[in-house]
């Protein structure tokens, strides 16, 4: 593996009803549930993708962050790998599905909920939207792990598994959420290392 410099090209953070892109606030609402915040963001950015409303909350969160980072890269055949992580996996949706099958007298499992009972489905939604046919992996950590993420990203880039990597943290559980996604490339941007990633994450 030839080691080469890697850079953070752009980054997006979503938390507490607010979206920041490259450190600048681009959208916020007052106090409201995530589902209402997500709908308001969808309308604000004129995303025009009706399938958004069928997604579970984890996928909506990942989709919104990815959309802001990739909106200018809609041309086809971009080799952008996906590397995401979180703490709660798809537990929020798993519980909703479990509730629909708890009662044998009222047993109506929802197919539309069931399809989101895996965390990596959110990467599928991003891939479909942006026509990505690339490497993708989803890791579960107790907390955001910039050291692991930067190492894994560098391996993908330095072994030519991808031209760029969209990576980060996308966590949703019981209306508490945080997305921190960033694009890593070999060409330009902020130097990509664990300390820098952690600093941007903590902003």
């Amino acid at each position: 593996m030839i080691k080469q410099a890697t850079y953070i090209k752009a980054y997006c953070s979503i938390q507490n009803n607010k979206i920041d892109l490259n450190g600048t606030s681009v959208f916020k609402t007052g106090e409201c549930l995530f589902v209402d915040f997500a709908k308001a963001a969808y309308r604000n950015f004129e995303l025009n993708y009706p399938k958004f409303f069928k997604m579970d909350n984890l996928s909506k969160l990942a989709f919104l962050a990815a959309e802001l980072l990739l909106k200018n890269e809609l041309e086809t055949d971009r080799d952008i790998a996906l590397l995401l992580s979180n703490k709660s996996s798809s537990l929020d949706t798993d519980i909703k599905f479990q509730e629909s099958i708890n009662n044998q007298e009222n047993y109506f499992p929802s197919p539309a909920v069931f399809v989101y009972t895996l965390p990596n489905i959110c990467m599928g939604e991003i891939s479909i939207r942006h026509n990505l046919k690339s490497e993708n992996t989803f890791f579960i950590f107790e907390e955001f792990n910039p050291g692991f993420m930067s190492n894994y990203t560098n391996v993908l880039l330095c072994t030519n598994r991808a031209e760029e990597v969209l990576c980060g943290w996308v966590e949703y559980y019981k209306d508490t959420y945080r997305a921190f996604l960033y694009i890593v490339t070999t060409t330009f941007g902020i130097p990509h290392d664990a300390t820098t990633i952690q600093t941007l994450f903590n902003k």
Partner: peptide
């Protein structure tokens, strides 16, 4: 196809 499955569940429920 997922919508079709939801409609089948609706018929039952």
């Amino acid at each position: 196809s997922i919508d079709a499955l939801e409609l089948i569940v609706m018929l039952d429920k």
